[in-house]
Design a protein around this nucleic acid. Structure first.
Lengths: 205, 205
DNA sequence: AGTTGACATGTCAGAAGTTACATAGTGAGG
DNA sequence: CCTCACTATGTAACTTCTGACATGTCAACT
């Protein structure tokens, strides 16, 4: 499945996680621990991984020659390893990037809406009210973050931080849509009547 | 993990897939094959499963007493089983629905944008141009579908088809956001300059 | 002096999900 | 007559992901 030593001819194919780690390493060398942190924001809103998945994957990437580890003394009993993207790794990433992505959406939030009228409308309204509130708070936070990045020039496609900015914008769009949809759902569930999407929310009536 | 015969006291916890199948069965009895089809639209845009996952899960649900199988002759060598949601199954679903959903977003599309400036801008612009086009065609299709459902009264929260309508609306919102974002990305990548989100797209200039 | 949290790396068991294999009847179209 | 697509149910091998276990240092706070 992945290249072994002296097996250069085989087309080396990585998992999405592998490419995610390579992407993170384009931001500079890092330890597995730092990659775990770096994955949290902003890409974490669209791609997550635990350290228990990251460490073995880094070992595989190193075996494939896509990353290189510099060892040093760590705080614990083991060696601390700082990984760097190799030219081969960058080439692999560049080859993977323009390929059409695998679309595999999975949202428990929407799944629950699918069965919404099997449950108590008031309870479901509360659920989606909470979801809308959380999405709006994320929206606020990310909007402020995006403004800062824009001021720092990250909206320039040539800026190394452009990817972060792009992800943040998608996060904002996604939060906005979800909040608007959840608001509509809440209004439907609370009034018990058909409501047009985007119709004004009847306030305290 | 799941209840066995005569083990009623244990809190029976299901997987998200199990609840997805229960949700599908609120639309009426179905075979595993029919559930596989039923899952494709519209909930398939936010939750998918292969038949190889569905058949064993149905067996587990039956063992837990959440669904009941009526056997009959099938086209192949095996018995055809038509599953029905039991009162216990509906109760379990109703208990699960209002609980806060697990949020686990995963989008290769956004992941690739995160590393966009490691690749050839023209290739990435093509990629996101294609994505925007596909999202717009889905948007068209779903908008027409939603209009039909609305005419059929599915926008009434009491209508059994309300869940389908709600999922479709989220699909529409999601496609709209993604298309707008992809358009912005394409403009950035093609012009090579900072572009405001929502700014008019320079046409053939 | 003791606790908590951050830094740092790993393993293991199990759950969840994908792909391919296996079987077989019916009806439509070429 | 043959092939293809649809209906229908399952298994097996494999990959991916989560959650828990395991270890140990250092700095800050109580």
């Amino acid at each position: 499945m992945r290249a072994r030593d002296g097996d250069d001819s085989v087309s080396v194919s990585g998992s999405a996680l592998g490419y995610a780690l390579l992407s993170l390493l384009t931001r500079g060398p890092a330890t597995g621990y730092q990659l775990t942190q770096r994955m949290k924001s902003p890409i974490g809103h669209f791609w997550t991984a635990q350290h228990s998945q990251i460490y073995p994957e880094l070992a595989r990437l190193a075996a494939a020659g896509w990353v290189e580890a510099a060892e040093g003394d760590g705080p614990g009993p083991r060696q601390k390893k700082t990984y760097t993207l190799t030219p081969d790794g960058l080439a692999a990433l560049r080859e993977w990037l323009p390929r059409p992505p695998v679309v595999a959406p999975r949202s428990e939030t929407v799944l629950k809406a699918y069965a919404a009228n099997s449950a108590d409308p008031a309870a479901m309204a509360d659920l989606y009210g909470g979801i809308a509130a959380r999405q709006r708070s994320l929206l606020d936070e990310w909007t402020r973050e995006a403004a800062m990045l824009r001021d720092a020039g990250h909206d320039d496609p040539a800026h190394p931080g452009f990817g972060n900015y792009a992800v943040l914008l998608m996060g904002i769009e996604s939060a906005r849509s979800t909040a608007a949809w959840a608001d509509w759902l809440v209004t439907c569930l609370r009034t018990g009547r058909a409501v047009g999407f985007g119709d004004p929310i009847p306030s305290g009536a």
